[in-house]
């Protein structure tokens, strides 16, 4: 038996109200053991109240080489920000 355990990504919710954030990954033979391993590896100091375990192979990541075409189009759309609009100082609460 020489099967490599699959990789799992670990997400922790620090407290209710916050979203789960990526913490790292673990190798484990199945989902249940991955959850146990993540608990032991990443939450020994009260780091969170909830864990998500996701098979690493299930994550679809963008190619950093595509960053320009994906994200640069937002750069010249300054009108998406409130400060683009000049409101006189005497007008409040807007």
């Amino acid at each position: 038996m020489n099967k490599v355990w699959p990789l799992w990504e670990v997400f922790i919710r620090a407290k209710n109200g916050l979203s789960h954030r990526h913490a790292g990954s673990v190798h484990a033979a199945d989902a249940k053991m991955a959850l146990e391993a993540a608990r032991d590896t990443y939450t020994r100091r009260m780091e969170g109240v909830s864990l998500w375990i996701v098979p690493s192979a299930a994550i679809v990541a963008s190619d950093p080489g595509d960053a320009a075409e994906l994200f640069e189009p937002a750069a010249d759309k300054v009108y998406r920000h409130p400060t683009f609009y000049v409101i006189p100082d005497n007008v409040k609460n807007i």
Partner: peptide, 27 residues
């Protein structure tokens, strides 16, 4: 409810320009 609250945080952040562009049109 956490997911609703988090959606609202995103929405509020984006919403401010909506009001200001409208006021600018009126101005």
């Amino acid at each position: 409810y956490g997911p609703y609250a988090r959606a609202m945080v995103r929405v509020c952040k984006e919403e401010s320009f909506h009001q200001r562009q409208g006021y600018e049109i009126m101005m």
